[in-house]
Design a protein around this nucleic acid. Structure first.
Lengths: 280, 280
DNA sequence: TCATTTTTGGAAATTTCATTCCAATTCGGT
DNA sequence: ACCGAATTGGAATGAAATTTCCAAAAATGA
């Protein structure tokens, strides 16, 4: 048998390893333990058990399963971790930032940090650059549409797949125009007059997206556009146009802000639809 | 009489004020409390008393002197402080959400703002939770692979499409396992032994992704896994496992952190490949 | 110095907590 | 569907910890 884990990190590894062979309730505890480590640190067996929806004795059994004499012994690991981290917590962030902020910028962790930082800044800007009335109009259109078609290629395809996923998630009819079999025109032709279309298009504005969107607009279908510039060729055709400046690092564009907007739109729509169903 | 201090900061002020009028032993306790706050948070009355060289009952009297019903009630302040300093991801996000104003939360702009805030917090957290050696190993694997296959369904499909796009963008052979025509097994079967596979899998861990990844691993293909918990069923099989806790608002999970990681991986890979080409 | 009040430390009492035991149930295999 | 094994939840037990009580000691004031 393996040694009893003596640090929280070791314990987490052990839990992950054994997770599959644990019983149902023990797995439930494992999940809770991983998710709420500091609830374990302070809580008493009774309240933790209640919070994790298991019987107190299950917690003791869980600790035993990993070799501890009882729950309390295991709990000590969680407390140690908190005490160790506590005094240096803010310090750690500062140190990490300093270490990452210097010149030699091509280690993966530094790149990750740069992206995270840049994306966070872009998100902050997003809040200021999006106008409330645009959001309202977009939600109006989507709420009124019988079905929603989503189009985007290359990088924007990621956004399109997100929309398709999210809209279906909230029980809206959504069709992803993915051009399988080269059938952009055919898929675009299937858009009904009471539908709506969401197009995402970034520089250099792929013609496939433009063609599909233009064809739809000509038939009177409202277009919601997400793009990176007011000068986007589709901007003039759109019923609503969101201009998103996403973060860029080393020539790579991030998608955090764009997806954030997509998510906000989706959930706003969910609320709206819900409200209408209750009211009507 | 003054109100009972409800935060550790208030208590410390109160202690400082009353310090001069306390009796000898109580001053001794005061000194110890100020110097070792987190010993108070976890310790039992007996061990704290021993440590501070006072009698256990003196600790209780100390707490009573500041208006608490007992030592335990005062102790809670010290625990709260520790929890606040070392918040879990979800807790920090919750705090961020509360700061943004939580009452009327259903206008689209407020939702957008909530998402942006929560995502920014999650990004900050991402920087600290990803280990450098994991990133290095992942880049090693991808750099050595002849081709990279990417799998993910539903929400994770968005991530998979991003990988496919990004890898092709940097001239790597990338295949998106999209299950078109229900051919997950067939697409998975096309993975060569010198390839690599990137799987993204979130709760509830779709069987399609698991099947494809397991089949690949059985043939000796290295698996890079992006998931939301160390308890993910694929975690044990992965050569490298990234656990990403993305932001969540109103039950909707964001993807900002996950995509940020995907992007950092992609660009790190680009640098690595470039370096190898120059060197070799 | 003596009397009174305050403070202190020991010990008991009480509450709370973790653990163990056992019966009921579920699960897995035949 | 049945049997054996494993798992689970409830109650009881035993330990530990907090609090209260009381007597002894120290401090204060006259």
């Amino acid at each position: 048998m393996n040694a009893v884990p003596q640090t929280l990190a070791d314990l987490k590894v052990a839990i992950a390893e054994q997770h599959s062979v644990l019983s149902k309730r023990l797995r439930q505890v494992a999940q809770y333990v991983m998710d709420n480590p500091n609830a374990i640190a302070f809580g008493t067996v009774a309240v933790i058990a209640k919070d994790a929806s298991v019987h107190p004795s299950t917690l003791v059994r869980f600790a035993n399963a990993f070799g501890y004499s009882g729950f309390s012994e295991m709990q000590r690991l969680f407390q140690q971790k908190l005490i160790q981290e506590s005094p240096s917590y803010t310090e750690r962030i500062r140190i990490a930032r300093e270490e990452l902020g210097d010149d030699s910028r091509d280690t993966p962790l530094q790149l990750l940090s740069q992206f995270a930082g840049a994306s966070a800044v872009a998100l902050e800007q997003l809040r200021e650059s999006i106008r409330e009335e645009d959001l309202e109009r977009a939600v109006d259109i989507l709420a009124a549409a019988e079905a929603t078609h989503v189009v985007g290629v290359r990088r924007a395809f990621v956004v399109a797949t997100y929309f398709a996923y999210a809209l279906r998630h909230i029980d809206r009819r959504a069709y992803l125009i993915d051009g399988v079999g080269g059938m952009y025109a055919e898929q675009g032709g299937a858009i009904g007059e009471r539908d709506a279309i969401i197009a995402t298009s970034f520089h250099p504005y792929a013609p496939e997206t433009q063609d599909v969107a233009k064809a739809a607009v000509e038939r009177g279908v409202p277009l919601i556009l997400i793009t990176d510039s007011q000068l986007s060729p589709l901007a003039a055709l759109a019923s609503v146009c969101f201009v998103v400046r996403d973060a860029e690092v080393h020539g790579f564009r991030a998608l955090g802000s764009t997806l954030c907007l997509a998510q906000a739109l989706s959930i706003s729509l969910a609320y709206r639809v819900d409200k209408q169903r209750v009211a009507g």
